[in-house]
Design a protein around this nucleic acid. Structure first.
Lengths: 144, 144
DNA sequence: TGCAAATGGTTACAGATGAAACTATAACGA
DNA sequence: TCGTTATAGTTTCATCTGTAACCATTTGCA
């Protein structure tokens, strides 16, 4: 009989990472989805605007590691919802100039603490050594 | 002026995890997608069948952490492609009895080493301590 | 200048995904 | 035994996502 060496999925790192990441992201996403009708992509856009506004759509894409189509769609929803203000760039009329609206800031200020809370709950299960090493691992494997 | 405390997305753990997981998974997925027309979900189904066959669809779902709809769809594609054999369970005619076909095993034996190679390349960037701690972290946060 | 290539952003299409409804079969309890 | 409930699996629908094509504007250069 031939030897097949089946993959042990439950020990396979990329698989486990994907499970963990989906579990965590969905738990957080569910929260701001239900309460604010905000998708994960929309939240990411809001988060980078909160930190770096004003930005163009391309810059948002760079900061969020999303592609420009996803950003464009998230933005049109956010602008429609009155959470983001969009203007045209003076010198370059292709570019947009994006900022959180007052309402956008309100949503941000409500969501951000909950996101942080989820992160804390996750980290609470780890020792400080594990947290340090995890940060190092992420720096190595997924530099931002 | 009010204090807004914007979230530092690029330091936010769930975000970084999701980036890492997507990067890794997509790199692997691209490979078996191009060469075998195999999606990630289909590959996961094949991997658990390789290890635990025969299984019912529900059992596949449990092993892969996929929902039953996703499993059903992946299976119908795999059966159509002749990579999985599906029979009816003798005692319970609702249940299916799933096994890799010969062709399925050929695909599995071609894909599995590449998946492992990707994992090795990823781990090669880490020290043995980091690898150990990562395994511990995953055990704690995403027990399988 | 003026025309090709590059850039910012949107639209269109096709495939993937999740929730809920549905079909068929089996298990359970009066 | 009959009727209710539970389970295995599929289908449907609405939404999401990625790729490619597209439009408008700007840049680069002959």
């Amino acid at each position: 009989m031939t030897e097949h060496a089946p993959l042990k999925l439950e020990r396979f790192l990329p698989y486990r990472l994907s499970i963990l990441s989906n579990t965590v992201s969905q738990a957080i996403a569910r929260e701001y989805q239900q309460e604010f009708g905000l998708s994960m992509t929309e939240w990411r856009v809001m988060a980078v605007l909160a930190r770096f506004e004003p930005l163009s759509a391309r810059e948002v894409a760079e900061h969020t590691a999303m592609d420009k189509v996803a950003v464009s769609r998230a933005l049109s929803r956010l602008v429609d919802a009155g959470r983001v203000d969009r203007e045209r760039h003076d010198g370059d009329r292709r570019r947009s100039v994006l900022r959180l609206s007052e309402e956008g800031w309100r949503v941000h200020d409500a969501v951000a603490p909950r996101a942080r809370k989820h992160e804390r709950e996750m980290l609470a299960q780890l020792t400080t050594e594990e947290i340090d090493v995890l940060a190092r691992i992420l720096d190595k494997l997924a530099p931002v």
